[in-house]
């Protein structure tokens, strides 16, 4: 009996001990965690190995850069809740602001790196079925009878917020009815949405893999990726006449890097995004590089279209746009209120 009671105790002890040991184990040294949003998966996978090489060449130290992906809001929440991110690379400044508000990132984060801390940009385009059977060329065409639209939920997806804002900006600026017209345009538009996924990736899958909808409102890079991934024989990309310049920002999470002693490598990681190699890689993954040379090298890959930004007076920056449109009881809730 002694032996078996001993072994029982050992089992119990090791189970508890294992839990404690694991609890105490923070992320290992020589690692860097980049908490990012959905459509950057392929880009950061390649960039992480590029950076590891650069860092090894420069300092002689090995570094393993990990990435975590998900809806931008969910990722920001995880960082706020204690996910040990060294850097965040999210879909919109609002999400990084939310982290900064809780004291994890210094308030001046957006001034610390060039171009509002967004090393690459993107825009919102239409992905349509091959040959564009519904002849969708610009925003008003979306309301044609029988057109069904796939876009994720603006409440949870950063990309969806850009979609929404692009449509809003078009309606305010290019149709003649001002905000009232924008409201009714978006109400009509969301009536035609059969699936409102929580993230940009889910929406793309619904459109591409499940055959939902006639048009997917998507990040430019996401549209190109789907195009490359699933065959150019199935889809076409349509650039609307007018869209929004999406500026996905990046920041070092000050409190985490100071505690973990990773500030140097984290800052180097973000700066590497601005180097010619980083910019070329961004362009390769269909993000619009900031660097003129890289942009020129990309040639006709990024058509120039008329674009507005979030700082346009009709939006007045992320904080205001978020409160007006996406907070509970905001424009989006009113637009969605009637249900079906």
């Amino acid at each position: 009996m002694t032996l078996s009671s001993l072994s029982r105790r050992a089992v119990l002890g090791s189970a508890l001990g294992g839990g404690v040991a694991l609890a105490a184990r923070a992320q290992g040294a020589g690692q860097l965690l980049n908490v990012s949003y959905d459509p950057t998966r392929e880009f950061y996978r390649e960039f992480n190995s590029l950076f590891a090489e650069q860092w090894k060449a420069k300092t002689g130290q090995g570094i393993r850069a990990n990435a975590s992906h998900g809806g931008s809001g969910r990722q920001a929440r995880a960082v706020i809740d204690g996910l040990q991110a060294d850097v965040v690379t999210l879909a919109l400044a609002y999400d990084i602001d939310a982290i900064a508000e809780r004291g994890l990132i210094n308030a001046d984060w957006q001034q610390r790196l060039p171009h509002n801390s967004s090393p690459y940009t993107s825009t919102i385009v239409f992905l349509v079925r091959k040959g564009n059977p519904k002849k969708l060329a610009d925003w008003p065409d979306l309301l044609k009878p029988g057109v069904s639209i796939v876009t994720p939920n603006p409440k949870t997806s950063g990309g969806a917020r850009w979609n929404y804002l692009a449509a809003w900006a078009w309606a305010v600026k290019k149709s003649s009815g001002g905000e009232q017209a924008a409201r009714s345009f978006l109400t009509e538009m969301f009536r035609k949405v059969p699936v409102l996924d929580t993230g940009a990736r889910g929406a793309t899958t619904s459109f591409v893999q499940r055959g939902q909808g006639d048009v997917l409102l998507a990040w430019e890079n996401e549209a190109h990726l789907a195009f490359a991934e699933f065959g150019a024989d199935q889809f076409d990309i349509v650039y609307p006449g007018f869209s929004i310049l999406a500026e996905p920002p990046v920041a070092v999470v000050d409190r985490n890097v100071d505690r973990r002693g990773t500030r140097a490598v984290a800052e180097a990681y973000l700066q590497a995004l601005y180097t010619p190699e980083g910019q070329a890689l961004a362009a390769k993954h269909f993000y619009r590089p900031r660097d003129e040379a890289a942009l020129a090298a990309a040639g006709s890959r990024f058509p120039r279209i008329e674009m507005t930004t979030i700082d346009d007076p009709i939006f007045g920056g992320w904080k205001k746009a978020q409160a007006t449109h996406f907070d509970d009881g905001g424009e989006f809730d009113r637009i969605y209120q009637p249900g079906r």
């Binding site: 929440r77 699936v195 509970d328 969605y336």
Partner: peptide, 23 residues
């Protein structure tokens, strides 16, 4: 589910959605 608000959105998803809004 398709997760369309007011139509095919389940309550557990709404918990997740609210978490994502820091609520």
């Amino acid at each position: 589910a398709g997760n369309t608000p007011m139509w095919s959105e389940i309550a557990p998803l709404l918990i997740v959605v609210r978490l994502e809004q820091f609520d």
